[in-house]
Design a binder for these strands. Structure first.
Lengths: 126, 126
DNA sequence: GTTGACCCTCACATCAGTGTGAGGGTTTGA
DNA sequence: TCAAACCCTCACACTGATGTGAGGGTCAAC
């Protein structure tokens, strides 16, 4: 599919699809006329990229973790340099920390909203 | 405590402590000479702010969720305008989505690293 | 062969978070 | 009084993710 179609399917501006490519996150084929040609799988890939970006990961890191996602059975171990492994281990820790932080704060916000909705504050509601 | 001390305790550049203040995330007292004077509790607060920033939340949102954190028993319901409530509900959803996305990808990275470490790929390890 | 909807490559602009430094006051200690 | 180590307020600059537009090619429909 071409960039316009992918843009629609993923709700992502064309500009960003080109940007992700510039950052090496996606590498679409090219038609004879120079148009980008995306495989079907890029819909999920782009959605994943956007989710990770939204979660605070920079494109540089996303680029490194993308290769180990999506095909748990066909992991390409040979592609993993010791350097990449180290980066992944570091990022694994950071992601875990992020999840913990987000979870804690999410729960707190949820508790707050609960209290607001029931008009209750623990002080007895009055 | 003064800004230098808070900076040390939180590993946060002075510049950023001033920036967080500029964004309304923290509001230190001032000494007679104009120096900022931070209560002990700001250490945790700043750490929390940095965790949320790292998780992708912008200061604008952090500012809104901060008031409902830290004191689950003394929530100040009256401070919650309907607008704030709506924002919080929206952010709650987004945080949940972020957590899901991060968890899924975290697990995938963990699986990948596991496979690399055991030299196993399902293909038999080469 | 012209129009309109696509696509392309720049390239400048914006916003948030952060670095860095200029220019200057305060406090502490020799 | 002077120096060192703090603090202050600007203010410019960078990076990363994104918006926007200029200038121009491609292709299908008329």
């Amino acid at each position: 599919m071409r960039i316009g179609e992918l843009s629609e399917h993923t709700g992502t501006p064309r500009r960003l699809l080109r940007y992700y490519e510039e950052q090496g996150l996606i590498v679409p084929d090219r038609c004879a006329n120079g148009y980008r040609d995306y495989a079907e799988a890029y819909v999920d890939r782009v959605l994943q990229i956007r989710g990770l970006l939204d979660a605070g990961l920079p494109t540089r890191i996303i680029k490194q973790i993308l290769p180990c996602l999506g095909r748990p059975r066909t992991i390409e171990i040979p592609e993993a340099t010791p350097e990449t492994i180290a980066t992944l281990e570091r990022e694994l820790d950071r992601m875990t920390a992020r999840i913990r932080c987000l979870s804690r704060n999410r729960d707190a916000v949820a508790d707050y909203l609960d209290a607001v909705r029931t008009g209750t504050v623990g002080a007895g509601g009055g």
